Amino acid sequence: MRKHLIIAAISGALVLGGTAITSPVVNAAGNGPEYQGHETINTQILHTYQEMMTFLETQNKKQAQMEVEVIGQTVKGRDIPLVKYMSDPANPTILYLAQQHGDEALTTEGMLDYIKSLGTGKNKGVLDNVNILLIPMYNADGAMGDVNYELEDYAAKGPRHLTRYNANQVDLNRDHEARTQPETQALHQNVLQKYDIDYMIDLHHQGAQWVKDDKYVSGAIFYPYPEHTKADVLYKSKQLGAVVYEAIEPKGWGHLAKYAGKGSAYGAGIGVYGIANEYDISTLLLEMRGTADNAFDFEVLGQKSNGYLTKQSVIGMEKTAQAIADGSVLNESIEFWEDLPVQESILED
Score class of each variant (00 low, 15 high):
2 R>H: 12
3 K>D: 05
10 I>D: 10
15 V>L: 15
16 L>V: 14
18 G>F: 06
21 I>C: 01
24 P>Q: 07
38 H>L: 13
47 H>E: 05
47 H>M: 07
48 T>V: 09
57 E>I: 09
59 Q>S: 05
75 V>W: 14
79 D>H: 12
80 I>L: 13
84 K>A: 10
87 S>V: 04
95 L>Y: 01
98 A>M: 11
106 L>I: 15
109 E>G: 03
110 G>F: 13
114 Y>C: 01
115 I>C: 08
120 T>H: 08
122 K>P: 01
124 K>Y: 06
124 K>V: 03
131 N>G: 03
135 I>W: 00
138 Y>F: 14
138 Y>H: 05
144 M>E: 15
148 N>Q: 10
148 N>R: 06
155 A>N: 08
157 K>A: 14
166 N>V: 04
166 N>W: 08
167 A>L: 13
170 V>H: 05
171 D>F: 09
172 L>R: 04
174 R>D: 02
177 E>D: 15
177 E>G: 04
178 A>V: 13
180 T>E: 14
186 A>M: 09
192 L>C: 06
207 G>Y: 00
210 W>E: 12
211 V>Q: 13
214 D>G: 12
216 Y>A: 11
224 P>T: 04
225 Y>V: 07
228 H>W: 00
231 A>T: 15
232 D>I: 11
233 V>A: 09
238 K>V: 02
238 K>G: 04
239 Q>F: 03
240 L>V: 05
248 I>R: 02
249 E>F: 00
250 P>G: 13
260 A>V: 13
264 S>F: 02
265 A>L: 13
277 N>Q: 15
288 M>C: 15
290 G>C: 11
304 K>P: 01
307 G>K: 11
308 Y>L: 05
314 V>P: 04
326 D>H: 06
330 L>V: 00
342 V>L: 13
344 E>V: 09
